[in-house]
Nucleic acid binder design. Structure first.
Lengths: 182, 182
DNA sequence: TGGTACATGTAACATGTTACATGATTAG
DNA sequence: CTAATCATGTAACATGTTACATGTACCA
């Protein structure tokens, strides 16, 4: 029997459940910490996916604990579905980057407005890089040996460095003193 | 009167309409060509957004032409909404990258499966970079002077280069066991 | 005792994709 | 004539966010 295509969100929950039973709340916070920089999810979506996967037998809802906590347990079918997702469904689809839409349509914008958005976004990316660098230094100092965490962090650093270099090498007509047209 | 928040898709359509009246079909193909690498849209979504924006007075549906073509015209309100979107709503939200989810959860995967996904995705990104490089060379040869197109293409090149460098510098525990070369 | 963090869920809405239905025009 | 391309749209479904409702437990 073949399983439906899992969304990245659903698959990630199965992944986290390999470490042991977790509640929706737990999953949300662990996901935020580990993949929050590259994948966003909302609590309501987590609960919805857990309910759907429980219906399909990929996870099992455990008994209620204190504070109404309801831990979910990964089943063998869930484990199989996770590997199948990796083999089959991991998408390399378009990286959606709204700022690039602005730049591509920049000729239709007053120069100062375009410059303002670019400055705002450059600052955001600079802050992200600083945060990743800080986290990387911290991990190194703690002799954090987890290669998976290291690889994801390294991606963030390289990504943000590339973005900043792009900002700093924009054509002069965009970054500086171009005559406005429309 | 303040306008609803526009989606990136809707805003991009307003942007393209600055060049003159276009049909849904035209918008789809021009969007594909110019921002297709950083923003995906479907034809049915384009028609839906056009209908909604027509109701709101941001665009006006023109008269039917040959082949039932229905061109849309940008209104002053639409022009204003576009600039307002740039000032207010352009998001720098999370870059969603499913492969990073796989890597972050890599400890729960057989090494060969992880290696297979990585190889598959590396090839995709290598092909993209090759295509961007080709497009950049073509633009240079044609003395293509459009700085906006140049900036978006440059982003693609830098982005894909960074991704490939990341692939080639993965921790040895992930990439195989051979230490990364420089 | 009152605020904060924990915890689960539902409802409504926004956005996006795929599949389907329909027909016009052009190129071979 | 017929296949491909152009062109518009609807319907169904998938995914995602925000707002809301409800209640528990800790701690200052």
């Amino acid at each position: 029997m073949t399983i439906r295509n899992l969304s990245t969100t659903a698959a990630s929950l199965l992944g986290f459940l390999h470490s042991g039973p977790l509640t929706g709340w737990d999953l949300m916070s662990v996901a935020q910490q580990t993949i929050g920089a590259f994948w966003s999810l909302s609590l309501s979506q987590v609960y919805r996916e857990l309910a759907a996967m429980a219906r399909e037998g990929l996870v099992t809802a455990g008994e209620r604990e204190a504070r109404d906590r309801r831990p979910y347990v990964l089943t063998d079918a869930g484990r199989a579905a996770f590997v199948e997702w990796v083999d089959r469904d991991v998408e390399a689809g378009t990286i959606r980057f709204p700022l690039l839409v602005v730049v591509a349509l920049g000729r239709h914008l007053p120069a100062d407005r375009l410059a303002a958005v670019l400055a705002r976004h450059r600052a955001i990316h600079a802050a992200r890089l600083a945060e990743y660098d800080r986290a990387a230094a911290e991990a190194a100092a703690a002799h954090e040996p987890d290669p998976y965490a290291r690889a994801t962090l390294d991606f963030g650093v390289r990504q943000e460095r590339a973005v900043l270099e792009w900002f700093d090498n924009l054509p002069p007509e965009i970054s500086g003193d171009r005559p406005a047209e429309d």
